[in-house]
Deep mutational scan, measured.
Amino acid sequence: MKTQEELTEIVRDHFSDMGEIATLYVQVYESSLESLVGGVIFEDGRHYTFVYENEDLVYE
């Protein structure tokens, strides 16, 4: 089982391919040991929310 830090790094690596990240945040109250819920804001102003669970990243 991966730690929350490892899950965060996986998500950061994925989004870094889309541009320069200004902020990546995790909603700790919605996340667990198996899933990571949060959002990412890019330097150009784009903002996505995401759920990473079971090695699957869903964002909008």
Score class of each variant (00 low, 15 high):
residue 8 T to H: 06
residue 39 G to A: 08
residue 54 N to E: 06
residue 7 L to F: 04
residue 47 H to S: 06
residue 5 E to M: 09
residue 60 E to K: 15
residue 31 S to K: 11
residue 38 G to T: 02
residue 16 S to D: 07
residue 30 E to L: 11
residue 45 G to E: 04
residue 14 H to K: 13
residue 42 F to I: 02
residue 60 E to T: 15
residue 9 E to N: 12
residue 35 S to P: 04
residue 32 S to V: 10
residue 33 L to Q: 13
residue 58 V to L: 13
residue 55 E to A: 12
residue 1 M to R: 09
residue 51 V to A: 08
residue 46 R to H: 06
residue 12 R to A: 07
residue 52 Y to Q: 02
residue 30 E to S: 14
residue 57 L to F: 07
residue 28 V to I: 13
residue 2 K to E: 03
residue 35 S to I: 13
residue 29 Y to V: 06
residue 57 L to R: 01
residue 18 M to S: 04
residue 7 L to P: 01
residue 1 M to C: 09
residue 47 H to M: 07
residue 16 S to W: 07
residue 7 L to Y: 04
residue 53 E to I: 15
residue 23 T to D: 07
residue 42 F to G: 00
residue 36 L to T: 02
residue 12 R to V: 06
residue 55 E to L: 09
residue 3 T to Q: 05
residue 1 M to D: 07
residue 53 E to Y: 13
residue 23 T to C: 12
residue 4 Q to N: 05
residue 35 S to E: 06
residue 38 G to K: 00
residue 31 S to H: 12
residue 26 V to A: 04
residue 32 S to G: 09
residue 33 L to R: 15
residue 57 L to I: 10
residue 25 Y to P: 00
residue 12 R to H: 06
residue 48 Y to W: 08
residue 19 G to H: 02
residue 37 V to M: 13
residue 13 D to N: 13
residue 23 T to R: 11
residue 15 F to S: 01
residue 49 T to K: 13
residue 57 L to S: 02
residue 34 E to F: 08
residue 54 N to M: 10
residue 53 E to G: 09
residue 41 I to L: 08
residue 14 H to T: 11
residue 19 G to D: 02
residue 48 Y to I: 07
residue 43 E to A: 15
residue 13 D to A: 15
residue 48 Y to K: 01
residue 22 A to F: 09
residue 8 T to A: 09
residue 47 H to R: 08
residue 17 D to I: 15
residue 7 L to E: 01
residue 22 A to Q: 12
residue 39 G to W: 15
residue 4 Q to I: 13
residue 51 V to S: 10
residue 20 E to D: 11
residue 6 E to I: 07
residue 8 T to G: 05
residue 33 L to N: 14
residue 9 E to F: 11
residue 25 Y to M: 04
residue 48 Y to T: 01
residue 60 E to D: 08
residue 20 E to K: 15
residue 17 D to W: 14
residue 48 Y to N: 01
residue 50 F to S: 00
residue 41 I to K: 06
residue 22 A to E: 07
residue 7 L to C: 04
residue 45 G to Q: 04
residue 47 H to Y: 07
residue 56 D to S: 15
residue 48 Y to P: 00
residue 1 M to H: 12
residue 25 Y to F: 05
residue 58 V to W: 13
residue 6 E to N: 07
residue 51 V to Y: 10
residue 52 Y to C: 04
residue 13 D to F: 15
residue 7 L to S: 02
residue 57 L to V: 07
residue 39 G to Q: 08
residue 55 E to G: 11
residue 54 N to A: 10
residue 9 E to I: 11
residue 27 Q to F: 12
residue 1 M to G: 11
residue 57 L to N: 02
residue 56 D to L: 15
residue 18 M to W: 11
residue 30 E to W: 07
residue 56 D to F: 15
residue 31 S to M: 11
residue 59 Y to Q: 04
residue 40 V to F: 02
residue 59 Y to H: 08
residue 45 G to I: 01
residue 52 Y to A: 03
residue 52 Y to V: 05
residue 50 F to T: 00
residue 20 E to P: 10
residue 19 G to S: 03
residue 12 R to F: 09
residue 5 E to W: 12
residue 44 D to R: 02
residue 2 K to H: 08
residue 35 S to H: 12
residue 60 E to H: 14
residue 4 Q to F: 10
residue 27 Q to P: 03
residue 19 G to F: 03
residue 32 S to M: 13
residue 52 Y to N: 01
residue 47 H to E: 07
residue 42 F to M: 12
residue 5 E to T: 08
residue 32 S to Y: 10
residue 44 D to V: 02
residue 23 T to N: 09
residue 25 Y to H: 04
residue 17 D to L: 14
residue 36 L to G: 01
residue 35 S to W: 11
residue 16 S to I: 10
residue 30 E to Q: 10
residue 2 K to F: 07
residue 3 T to D: 05
residue 60 E to V: 14
residue 41 I to F: 08
residue 27 Q to N: 13
residue 24 L to S: 01
residue 46 R to Q: 06
residue 59 Y to K: 05
residue 11 V to A: 05
residue 30 E to D: 14
residue 41 I to H: 06
residue 24 L to G: 00
residue 59 Y to N: 02
residue 9 E to D: 11
residue 16 S to M: 11
residue 33 L to I: 13
residue 28 V to W: 11
residue 46 R to F: 03
residue 34 E to I: 11
residue 6 E to Q: 09
residue 22 A to T: 10
residue 43 E to W: 13
residue 45 G to F: 04
residue 7 L to H: 03
residue 10 I to D: 05
residue 17 D to F: 15
residue 12 R to D: 02
residue 21 I to N: 02
residue 34 E to R: 08
residue 34 E to V: 11
residue 29 Y to H: 07
residue 44 D to Q: 02
residue 31 S to C: 09
residue 12 R to G: 04
residue 56 D to Y: 15
residue 39 G to N: 07
residue 41 I to C: 07
residue 13 D to W: 14
residue 30 E to T: 14
residue 34 E to C: 09
residue 46 R to M: 05
residue 45 G to T: 04
residue 32 S to C: 09
residue 9 E to Q: 12
residue 2 K to A: 07
residue 26 V to R: 02
residue 28 V to F: 10
residue 57 L to Q: 01
residue 13 D to Q: 13
residue 59 Y to P: 03
residue 37 V to E: 08
residue 13 D to H: 14
residue 41 I to M: 09
residue 33 L to W: 10
residue 39 G to M: 10
residue 40 V to T: 03
residue 26 V to W: 06
residue 33 L to H: 14
residue 19 G to V: 02
residue 9 E to C: 09
residue 56 D to I: 15
residue 37 V to Y: 11
residue 46 R to E: 04
residue 46 R to C: 07
residue 21 I to P: 02
residue 11 V to W: 02
residue 2 K to S: 06
residue 38 G to H: 01
residue 20 E to F: 11
